[in-house]
Nucleic acid binder design. Sequence first.
DNA 1: AGCTGTACCTGCAGGC
DNA 2: TGCCTGCAGGTACAGC
Length: 269
Amino acid sequence: MPELPEVEAVRREVSPWLLQRTITRAKLLDAPQGPKYAGLSLLKDARIEAVNRRGKFIVCPLSNGHELVIHLGMTGVLTRMRPEKHGRVILHLAESEPVFFKDVRRFGRFCVAPGGDRRLLPTLFKMGPEPLSRAFTVSDFAGRLKSNTAIKSWLLTQRPVAGVGNIYADESLWRAGISPFKPARQLSNPEIERLHEAIRDILTDAVSAGGTTIKDFETGAGKQGRYGQALKVYGRAAQPCIECGQPLQRAVLHQRTTVWCARCQESSG
DNA sequence: AGCTGTACCTGCAGGC
DNA sequence: TGCCTGCAGGTACAGC
């Protein structure tokens, strides 16, 4: 599902379910073997000290020094209703209803970072600053754009800034008037400033709106994101650009659908 | 070390 | 009805 605003909506919703609760047991259901569900035995008898977000990850420090790390992938959901299908984990909590992790496509992750060591989570480990924090400055951002990779692809790596995915990358680049194909290191200083501001503004608005509901995204309790009506390019291929009226272009860049305006987002400038 | 392409999954909509 | 194809908000990793 989720990019930063959607994960933040989930975090806010599940915080009261989890905060200061003690995990009596974490039970693996039909979950993939391997690192995506590693270390769940370390959750036993741990108290959840905080429910934080880092980019698209939900990170919960535990009383035993370990960290619960959750990534929703494309289809992950935290819910208090027992899923009929695709349930991956049950989190049994002392004196509280259990919380389920459901994930249709199995791209998600629900694991423990022992001692809070995130080195086995490369994206989390190498992640850029939080876009809505004071650490996300224009000069820091500029320093992280030293790559020959197309700017859109580079944003999706999470390395220049945390939490930007396919929707908000397209929206931010359109707002900033930058071609998604332009190599990151070729952005001019004014372009970097515009992109920095666009990312901050768009994510701020999207968080306020509770995220974007494209198809069936909803948080565990069924809240719908309201940012979909504010989207200017995502999902609007072949429709007129809101700025100039030209039909929006569509292409596949790094296996992801990309929508942009060829007139407003020139490759140069 | 940096970059590209591919792999991992399931479900749904649309064309025939 | 059913089969096929393409598409979906993401990350991890192999190989160059």
